[in-house]
Simulated assay, not measured.
Amino acid sequence: MKLFTKSKSDEDKLLEGCLAGKREMQRLLYEQYASKMMLVCLRYAPTTFEAEDMMQDAFVKVFNNIHTFKKDCPLEFWIRRIMVNTALKHIRNKQLLTVSYEGEEITNLPSESVNLTGYTMDELVTMIQSLAPRYRMVFNLYAIEGYNHKEIAEMLDISEGTSKSQYSRARAILQSMISRQDNLYKEHVISSKQ
């Protein structure tokens, strides 16, 4: 069966079907957004299994609350917000958001920005997943979801300064990882030419 395109009339039909509780329309909505939303959940979850669990819980919330959707924002944005909130709730319930020590030192940080070309989305998601949970949450919320530090502080029950500090550390750790990967690749190329 053909998936709906992003035209407004098709989205309206999809919404109407979901509001009426039609399983076929719910399946189509799920199929249309599942791969994008899985990427959202993967950025927050430490494992693929937990990301799948988060996504399934979030889609249940989507279908249970579809009647609250207001057409003043895109449907994808509304679904993404539910995914993020569900991911944060999962992490909170597992008590993985312990505050990192503020004086923690990160050594060998690159001062320049790094080039992300040549990295696949899977490689970048894997690097983000390797961050400590609090760093991962703040990085995702700020750099990818677009929340400001005040909003993040409220969402995670931390100070705005802590949000800024942890975002800075997460960014520095990711830059360091990318620099190490680049150096390993350069060393490999040099040694293979000899």
Rank of each mutant, 00 (worst) to 15 (best):
L3M: 02
F4K: 09
F4P: 04
T5R: 06
K6T: 13
S7A: 14
K8G: 04
D10G: 11
D10E: 15
D10A: 14
D12R: 12
L15Y: 03
E16F: 07
L19A: 01
L19H: 02
G21R: 05
K22R: 14
R23S: 08
R23G: 10
M25Y: 10
Q26C: 12
Q26T: 07
Q26N: 04
L28T: 08
L29F: 00
S35I: 03
S35E: 08
M38C: 04
L39S: 06
C41A: 08
C41I: 06
L42Q: 00
L42T: 09
R43Q: 01
R43W: 00
Y44Q: 03
A45V: 03
P46H: 09
P46Q: 12
F49N: 15
M54R: 02
Q56M: 02
D57A: 05
D57I: 00
F59W: 06
F59E: 00
F59Q: 03
V60D: 01
V60T: 04
V60F: 00
V62Q: 03
V62N: 05
F63A: 07
N64H: 08
N65Q: 10
N65I: 00
I66W: 01
K70G: 02
K70L: 05
C73N: 08
C73K: 14
P74L: 12
P74D: 09
P74R: 07
E76A: 05
F77D: 09
W78N: 06
I79E: 05
R80K: 11
R81A: 02
N85S: 14
T86H: 10
T86R: 06
I91E: 05
I91K: 01
N93T: 11
K94L: 07
Q95P: 04
L96I: 03
L96Q: 11
V99Q: 13
S100V: 15
S100C: 13
Y101R: 11
E105I: 13
E105P: 07
I106R: 06
T107P: 07
P110L: 12
S113W: 05
N115H: 14
N115K: 11
L116N: 05
T117K: 13
T117H: 08
Y119V: 10
D122E: 12
D122M: 06
D122C: 00
L124A: 06
V125L: 02
V125D: 00
T126I: 06
M127T: 02
L131I: 13
A132L: 15
R134D: 13
Y135C: 11
R136C: 07
R136S: 00
M137T: 11
F139G: 01
N140A: 03
N140G: 03
N140D: 08
Y142M: 07
A143I: 01
A143W: 03
E145M: 09
E145N: 07
G146I: 02
Y147D: 04
N148C: 09
N148W: 04
N148K: 12
N148R: 03
N148L: 04
H149C: 11
H149R: 00
K150P: 04
M155A: 10
L156W: 01
I158L: 07
T162I: 09
S163T: 04
S163F: 04
K164I: 15
Q166C: 12
Q166W: 10
R171D: 08
L174G: 02
Q175R: 15
Q175T: 13
Q175V: 11
S176H: 10
M177K: 05
M177D: 01
I178R: 11
I178A: 02
Q181N: 15
N183G: 12
L184D: 04
K186G: 06
H188Q: 14
V189E: 14
V189D: 14
S191Y: 12
S191K: 13
